[in-house]
Design a protein around this nucleic acid. Structure first.
Lengths: 160, 160
DNA sequence: ACAAGTCAGTTGGAAAATCAAACTCACTCG
DNA sequence: CGAGTGAGTTTGATTTTCCAACTGACTTGT
C-alpha cells in the first residue's frame, strides 16, 4: 500500500540543516555562543553583550545546556553562581560563526561601524572551506543531498 | 566629557556576526536558502519543503530580496509568477549551510532519520575551514575580534 | 553597621511574531 | 464546465519576545 514514491502529503524536508537550526537557530543562541567563544562566561555580561533580555537568555542557555552545547560551571557556593562554558560540541560551532562573520563582512556594506573578526594569525577573516576527502574547495552548488541517516555514519565523538 | 573608556551603559556588541544574523537569522530564512541551493525555486515547493507558513515565508523572501540575497525572476506574464533565485550573495551563504549541516550531523545523534549532505565529489560532508592568509586550519578559539570597520576592508564585490 | 552594589536569575503584562487554515485571483488542463 | 495549480492574502488564535521591576544572597565602601 506504500510504493516508495508515495510521499505522505509532502512533509517538510528532515535534514541536518533543519535539525541544527532547531538547536542553534533560536534567537540569541548563536550570539550567546559567540560570547563564550570570546571568553565571556557570566550571565550578566552575556546579557549585556548580546542585548538579549534576561528571561529569554535564561531559556536559551538552558536549552543549549540540555543539548550538550554548553555547560554550567559553578564558581561560587554561597550564593550559588555559575559560569557558562562551551563543551566540545559548542566549541565546534566556531565554523558556523566564522562563515557567518565572513559572509556578513563581505555583503553587509552599509555605513554602520561594526567589530570585525580575524584569524589568530592576525589576518582579516577569510575562511576557505574545503572538502576533507578530496581537498577541493567547496563552491556554491557543491552541497548535495545524501541518503537518510539516523546517527552519523561513523564515530560518535564522546563529549569532553 | 567622554574619555575613551567611558562605555555608554554597555551597548550590545555590534559585530558582523550580529549583523549577519539580522538578515539570515530570522526563522525560515536559512531553510528557504537551502531550498534554492538545492534547486527549488518556486513558492509552493519552498513552503512545502521548509514547513514555513505561506504568510511568513512571503515576508522572509521579501526581506531576503531587499537585502540582495535572492532575486525574483518572472517566469509567467499572465498571471504574473516568479521564481526565487540566489544572487551571488545568496550563493555565498553555502559555507554557513555547510558548517551547520556538518555540526549537526556530528552532534545531533538521536534516532530520527534525516537527510545527510555530501560534497559533489561524493564524499560525506567533512568541511575543513582554513585561513586564506596563513593556510592554517581554524581551531576553536582562533576566531578573534578585530577593529571596528564601516565597510569591509577592501573591494566591494559587485553583485551578479 | 548600614547603605549601596553585584550577580543570577524571576515575575508580570504588553507588544510583536508566528501559526494554520481558509480564501482569492488568474489562469491551465481534461 | 469543473477541477486543479500556483502565488499569494486574510483572519484570528497561539506563541515568543520584550521590558522593566523585583528578589535573594551575598560583597564592598564609608
Amino acid at each position: 500500500m506504500n510504493r516508495p514514491t508515495d510521499k505522505a502529503v509532502d512533509a517538510p524536508r528532515a535534514c541536518f540543516i533543519a535539525a541544527g537550526l532547531d538547536v542553534l537557530g533560536e534567537r540569541w543562541a548563536l550570539l550567546a555562543l559567540r560570547e563564550m567563544s570570546l571568553g565571556v562566561h557570566r550571565f550578566d555580561q552575556i546579557a549585556r553583550n548580546t542585548g538579549a533580555s534576561r528571561d529569554i537568555l535564561v531559556g536559551r542557555l538552558r536549552t543549549l545546556e540540555n543539548q550538550g552545547v554548553i555547560e554550567r560551571v559553578q564558581y561560587s557556593e554561597r550564593p550559588p553562581r555559575y559560569e557558562y562554558h562551551l563543551t566540545t560540541s559548542g566549541a565546534e560551532v566556531a565554523p558556523i560563526l566564522i562563515s557567518l562573520a565572513a559572509w556578513s563582512s563581505t555583503w553587509m556594506r552599509d555605513e554602520t561601524p561594526r567589530a570585525s573578526y580575524r584569524h589568530s594569525c592576525g589576518a582579516d577573516l577569510k575562511p576557505v572551506v574545503s572538502c576533507a576527502e578530496c581537498g577541493e574547495e567547496f563552491t556554491p552548488g557543491s552541497l548535495m543531498l545524501g541518503p537518510l541517516v539516523s546517527a552519523a555514519g561513523t564515530d560518535p565523538p564522546s563529549d569532553q
